[in-house]
Amino acid sequence: MGVVEKHSMLSGFKVREAMRRQVLSLPDSKSVGKAISLLIKYKISALLLTDGDGRPSGVVSKTDIMNAYYADFPLDQELRSIAAASPITCTEQDPLEAALEVMRQNRIYRLYVYDQAHTRIVGLLAYPDIVGLLYRLCRSCKRNYLIQKGVREEAEVIRRFTVKEVMTPNVQSNRANDTLYTLMEALSQYRFGAVLIKDHSDNPVGVVSKTDLILAYKHGISPERPAHEIMSSKVHGCEASAYLAEAIQQMIFSDIHRLFVYQDRPENIVGVLSFTDAARVRSGSCRACLTTRIKIEDQGI
């Protein structure tokens, strides 16, 4: 993640131009169960925690909650006991590139944004927001060579990429009878948002995401239960040779974050494509600014 060139497309942009303004927070005295409900309801991956005076005191992500599940904490455990350290912050006036560098150095996926006076949190900066900004920039860019050539049909741009070129090869997989403990170990180790579940004959039969795991936690399912009890039995897949546009369309329609990529037949999974990766490649991809493309890590939304 985070290779940012000196004079990239993002030079000159401030954090406030890319951040999102809806920041969900919860007092750190609330329970883990309450946090799970909010994460699911708002389809987000982390919450800001506040102390008794309303000041930011920590962050709790799906990964932190998964770790609490792994550690057998009860659902009414206070959030402050499972939260990572103080939230890492920047201010809305900071250059976007500097903020990205902070994210890279700390190996984190999101930065909370203070107002200029550093008195209150006014936003949140996460990779998908930057991808959104890049996309808008690319579309309005005068140097976009396809626009220069008078290619009005934007579909032409996306026709240039296939799923195979963008996917991450080598998919982490587990067995249907592996326990949830085993799955959580795999997810922590690979820093990925979901694992593919295979049966004895190596055929893919389902997917377990961090979201599935925190829901299992909420529903009181023991982490000693096997994966097949909580997995989504549909493996959303697409062919490696498919156009990227089709894959993005499929993810939009299914409201999912990743597709498992297969070659020749659906059982033969060869890679995984995340929405952010797919969207990112659509930007900064023409010769005018090929060097400015940023690499970002899947954050397993």
């Binding site: 389809k43 991808v131 959104g132 808008r136 993005i248 993810m251 929405f275 952010t276 969207a279």
Partner: peptide, 17 residues
Amino acid sequence: LRPKHIHIWADMSDIDI
């Protein structure tokens, strides 16, 4: 109902939705 990634694809006029 709100799609997960709407803040990214709201601008993608080339994707048929």
